[in-house]
């Protein structure tokens, strides 16, 4: 499992809460750092990559069951 600088446990949250958590807290890691979002809401698999595209961050993929990895690029 890829190590992350910040783990956001969003299990049990419905859309758009996991993406809101990501949007509020990703700046807690330095540029180049990795945020992991643990989410079981099905919308996360579309919305987290879409958030990365819209916000200019790098989507690294899903690591295991519902753990989405994002690299802060700016």
């Amino acid at each position: 499992m890829t190590a992350a600088d910040l783990e956001l446990d969003c299990r049990g949250m419905l859309c758009p809460r996991p993406v809101i958590e990501l949007g509020r807290r990703y700046t807690e890691v330095p540029v180049g750092g990795i945020v992991a979002v643990l989410a079981d809401d099905v919308a996360a698999r579309t919305d987290i990559p879409a958030w990365c595209r819209m916000r200019g961050q790098e989507y690294l993929g899903e690591d295991g069951r519902g753990r989405y990895l994002v690299r802060r690029t700016s």
């Binding site: 859309c15 919308a43 579309t46 879409a50």
Partner: peptide
Amino acid sequence: GSACTASTLAPSHVLEAMGVLTHG
């Protein structure tokens, strides 16, 4: 087409297939 407004809990399969934001 967001999940919370649909009759199912799944978001729109159309938006999902396009890879665009399904919420809001």
